[in-house]
Design a protein around this nucleic acid. Structure first.
Lengths: 214, 214
DNA sequence: TAGATTGTTAATCGATTAACAATC
DNA sequence: TAGATTGTTAATCGATTAACAATC
């Protein structure tokens, strides 16, 4: 029975690969595979087996030498490391096209995230239901965040309003923010901030195409 | 007059920061700022001035010692490096909630990307207009990609169909793919692939909240 | 000129890769 | 046992930070 340890310092790169391992293990599980080697995991992900073993080993000893990793056990352990067994309550602020898309994103549910609130300031949007969740007036944000024990807030408002929304979320006692607005947000160190700037991906594509060929 | 050079090998980290510089320079321009120092740029972005100077210097000498960087000039140069002056033609495949959100994403336009085609296979969606662009039948993909000189394809279909779509895009002569489906896609080395896996961001948030406190 | 700020070289830090002993 | 595969240590590689000469 492997024990999950919480290392003092794990690289960001390692942490960003864990969700990929989790996803692949889930697929392997669906295929009825019992045991998987780092070699095979690496083949499926395009990551070297050494890298995978190193990443996993930083959290504990999950494999069996000469055998490989038990898929069920490893998936459970990786899920535990990621905190995906916790059922985080999340809220989305800004129910424009992106907010609607995120509210309907099925993968969140399958990762154990509960969408418990939606907020917007547009009277035409307030009161509507998106994926069975009612859109509330942003003015109710502080009250509802507290009442529904929301830990993670997703910011999907225009850049100009993002900091304001972040401030309200922080004041309401939120612990993590996932920001889709292309601005640098200022939040206290106690609040975890992850930025998802979509223009970076497309710009990087543009860069590589430009420098690959005329 | 600074000259943009194309370095043989620039780090991925540097390239991912360039769009941030571009964005900040555009804002500075809007504010009417003529000259900006690496110090001030760094303050606005949360990046060290040394890092910024190093990144920029790998493409040429854009600044004036003792003075700083001319905002207009630097913005133009960074835009040129990123290939944002090229007006890439892009298509979105899969017009679900995410596809609709991406089709309406204003930042793409402001970065010089032209949305020229939308594809879906659902007869109820085909023929509709999203952000003034008509949704075409996926069966027409090869023909339209060629006709409209589309260079970049955005995959917003469910994971199960993503590889199939990627294959079609590649066969149609596409040069870059921006993939939102949570799967590892196989494409030839000549085609540039950028993955945007939204579950990574949220999982990493979950990880950090889990390991920060009980 | 004196003060400021870049561009670049050297030093440090961190992450990946290679190698291999341990062991199932 | 022999073959396979993990976990870990050492070696390499790459990226960031520090320092400073060049120069506006």
């Amino acid at each position: 029975m492997a024990k999950t340890v919480s290392p003092l310092r794990t690289s960001k790169a390692t942490i960003d690969r864990l969700p990929l391992y989790f996803r692949t293990l889930r697929l392997a599980q669906d295929e009825g595979i019992d045991i998987i080697s780092s070699e095979e995991l690496g083949r499926r992900l395009g990551i070297t087996p050494e890298q995978i073993r190193k990443d996993l080993a930083s959290f504990g000893q999950f494999g069996k030498k000469g055998v490989g990793y038990y898929v069920n056990e490893l998936k459970r352990n990786v899920g535990e490391i990621l905190g995906l067994n916790r059922h985080w309550n999340i809220a989305i602020v800004g129910i424009g096209h992106l907010g609607v898309a995120l509210a309907n994103y099925q993968n969140f549910v399958s990762l154990g995230f509960n969408l418990v609130a939606l907020f917007d300031q547009d009277p035409n949007v307030i009161g509507q239901r998106v994926n069975h969740v009612k859109v509330e007036d942003s003015k109710q944000l502080a009250r509802i965040v507290e009442e529904r024990h929301i830990q993670i807030g997703i910011i999907a408002v225009p850049a100009a309003f993002a900091q304001e929304v972040a401030d309200e979320l922080v004041a309401a006692g939120l612990r993590g923010i996932w920001n889709f607005a292309p601005v640098k947000l200022e939040v206290p160190a106690s609040v975890r901030l992850v930025n998802e700037d979509l223009s970076i991906g497309l710009s990087s594509l543009s860069y590589h195409l430009t420098h690959a060929e005329g």
